[in-house]
Structures are given as structure tokens and as C-alpha cells.
């Protein structure tokens, strides 16, 4: 039941990475920290540890107590 939606989300994300890599200004964005965060999120996804969604959200969050 979940397989098709998971498959679709993964392919969509992969296609987005391809699109960015093929863009004219790829040098400027390819090493951006947001992209780095997404790569790191992918390793969380691929691992065996539970709480993947919460850990990815923490990875993508401003730490608590930090000034805006």
C-alpha cells in the first residue's frame, strides 16, 4: 500500500537532484548547505535506526535557544 507512494517520493527527489545538477548555475547551488542537509537526510532514511522522520526534522531545524 505504501510502496507506490514511497517509490514516487524517492524518484521525485532523485529527479530534483538531477534537475539541480543540470542547471546553468549548478556551481552556485550544488554545495549549498540546504542540499547538504538533504543528502544527510538521505543517509538517515537509508539507516536502520527508528524515528527517521523526527531525526530528519531536527536536522532541518534551527536549534532551540538560538537567536533568530
Amino acid at each position: 500500500m505504501y510502496f507506490l507512494h514511497m517509490r514516487s517520493a524517492l524518484i521525485e527527489t532523485a529527479a530534483s537532484f538531477d534537475r539541480i545538477q543540470l542547471a546553468d548555475d549548478v556551481e552556485a547551488v550544488w554545495k549549498e548547505s540546504q542540499l547538504e542537509d538533504l543528502r544527510q537526510a538521505a543517509t538517515i532514511l537509508a539507516g536502520d535506526e527508528p524515528d527517521r522522520a523526527a531525526r530528519i526534522l531536527h536536522l532541518l531545524s534551527v536549534p532551540a535557544g538560538e537567536d533568530a
Binding site: L4, H5, S8, I11, E12, A15, S16, R19
Partner: peptide
């Protein structure tokens, strides 16, 4: 919507 291409792809 899910099993083939998206507009972006």
C-alpha cells in the same frame, strides 16, 4: 498523480 511522471519530470 503517483505511479508515472510528474509535470516536473
Amino acid at each position: 498523480p503517483v505511479t508515472k511522471n510528474s509535470p516536473d519530470r
